[in-house]
């Protein structure tokens, strides 16, 4: 089986993991929860294996390049990062409900890559401008940041739900972390994401400087990554001002996630240089 085949199977494994997390939350059962965790680990390992195989296949085709240069490859890397960051959080906070809100997002990312007819999984050679080690660091750090923001988005949604029920009347919400814990975890994820997005933007700038002699050119993709960065920088500071706690922070996190999604998918609707999403 080639890497695309494995990754199609992995897509379904992610689907099962997401389903089990939801079942474990809704029916408050331990066994599906434990199964969900194992399935998620299996999906992550399969996902990473698929990426590794794709790398090897590119060498067999004589291109020899890291599998990080088109929409398909970035999406499968994205799903792996979401799963990895989530599993780290699960290990640290011992709470599987977060999985019910984030694992479906990992599934969506890889399902979009595997199932959308408009996304090609062919391994193509690199354009000369994309041959750079900075590019690899750039893509890897950006997507680790994106994954952290994705988890933060899931947590923010949980916060917004939980915060309406502080009295604890709704039985579906009693397995959630408390609202202050969710708020703190959201903040931790955003700091983590902000660091990686910063490194991602910086390595992108260094790469642009080595390819075109300018580190910043206000092309739409660059500008949108900066907009995302501004939104999260706003959030970091808003948290320190009075009247901006809790719900407003969660809304800002959702806004930052929307800006991130636009940076990733939407910018291709605008004119520019970046090739992700060029299907």
């Amino acid at each position: 089986m080639n890497s695309s085949g494995i990754l199609s199977v992995v897509t379904f494994v992610y689907g099962i993991a997401a389903f089990l997390y939801l079942v474990s939350w809704i029916f408050k059962k331990k066994t599906p929860g434990r199964l969900a965790t194992w399935t998620a680990y299996a999906a992550l390992i399969g996902n990473i294996t698929g990426i590794g195989m794709r790398w090897a296949e590119s060498y067999q085709l004589g291109y020899g390049r890291a599998p990080l240069s088109n929409l398909y490859e970035s999406l499968i890397f994205f799903s792996a990062m979401i799963a990895a960051v989530y599993l780290f959080v699960e290990k640290k906070y011992h709470n599987r409900v977060i999985g019910a809100f984030t694992m479906p997002l990992a599934f969506l990312a890889i399902a979009y890559a595997s199932l959308s007819p408009s996304i090609s999984d062919r391994i193509q050679p690199l354009l000369p401008a994309l041959k750079s080690n900075w590019l690899i660091v750039h893509v890897v750090t950006c997507f680790i940041g994106y994954a952290a923001f994705t988890i933060a988005f899931g947590i923010s949604i949980m916060y917004l739900i939980k915060e309406r029920d502080l009295a604890g009347k709704n039985a579906f919400l009693d397995q959630f972390l408390t609202a202050p814990e969710l708020d703190e975890l959201n903040y931790q994820m955003i700091m983590f994401g902000f660091l990686f997005l910063s490194v991602g933007i910086i390595t992108g700038a260094v790469w642009a400087n080595s390819a075109w002699g300018r580190y910043w050119g206000w092309d739409p993709k660059e500008t949108w990554s900066l907009i995302t960065w501004f939104v999260y920088a706003t959030l970091l500071h808003a948290r320190m001002t009075r009247g901006w706690h809790g719900r407003k922070i969660a809304y800002l996190s959702v806004a930052g996630f929307a800006a991130m999604l636009f940076t990733y998918f939407g910018v291709n609707l605008l004119p520019g240089l970046h090739s992700y999403g060029a299907m």
């Binding site: 739409p220 500008t223 907009i227 501004f230 939104v231 706003t234 500071h237 808003a238 001002t241 910018v267």
Partner: peptide, 16 residues
């Protein structure tokens, strides 16, 4: 800071 950063985020959209 919050106001300026948000304004930068929103106005930067125009040029894209």
């Amino acid at each position: 800071t919050v106001i300026v950063l948000l304004t930068l985020a929103v106005t930067s959209v125009i040029g894209t």
